[in-house]
Design a protein around this nucleic acid. Structure first.
Lengths: 127, 127
DNA sequence: CAGAATCCGCGTAGATACTG
DNA sequence: CAGTATCTACGCGGATTCTG
């Protein structure tokens, strides 16, 4: 039987997972999608409320590089930059919706499991 | 309009996301599911090939706490501990499959976008 | 076999100051 | 407005050692 590692080193799922398993990517993509697909930098910043400027820039750059978000600069004064979710980003975002629905339906079971686990008596050592 | 933050602080999706956005959780759950649903500690360790003992223990404890995995200890010598994926874990694992399929279908577009982004000429400053 | 305990590097992310 | 540039911290995850 093959190991997971040998399978995963070149695994597409691994690539995509690494692209989204950070603090803000999912939230940024979801924000864009829930606001018509296009937002400006500080608009996103305010909406996300808590993200630092550095992390927003970093997250947007990463999403742009992965083809999830399109960055459009208007050479005006003051500058205006629009961030739009691409078709690819929309496609991925729809998965997040499915994920969110699962979370809504099952979060209670998870929280209950946690409570049960945390109040479980410590396994008493055999004398 | 509400900010994402105010929405997300108590968001089920956030809870579940935080539970799985780490290096090994998805891989451990997927390994269990792809091996009949039950594996022993060192069996998982070998299968994951690269995970340290600490991280495997930590990941399994977290999954157990969240009700995704059931830990069964057989009081034998040497000790035997089985880890089985629960119904809840199976349910979540199915989402990973959907996710994996999306990754398979779209990883090429992502890689292409990255190449395009990385070879894109640096925006030449206006003189 | 299935861990517990400890030490430590490194990267993610936050805070702050500055700019075209 | 939309960033860039630094500095710093905190914690995740890895390596190692030891145990019932």
């Amino acid at each position: 039987m093959d190991t997971v590692q040998s399978y995963l080193h070149a695994c597409p799922a691994r690539t995509v997972l690494e692209a989204i398993t950070n603090k803000w990517t999912v939230l940024v993509l979801t924000s864009l999608r829930s606001n018509g697909g296009t937002m400006r930098f500080n608009e996103l910043r305010r909406f996300l409320d808590g993200i630092t400027q550095k992390m927003l820039t970093q997250t947007l750059r990463s999403l742009e590089r992965d083809g999830m978000v399109r960055r459009t600069v208007y050479p005006t004064v003051p500058p205006r930059v629009d961030y739009s979710v691409t078709e690819l980003g929309t496609s991925l975002g729809e998965l997040f919706n499915t994920f969110g629905e699962w979370a809504n339906e099952n979060v209670d079971r998870i929280m209950a499991a946690r409570t049960e686990f945390d109040t479980r008596p410590a396994p008493e050592p055999v004398n």
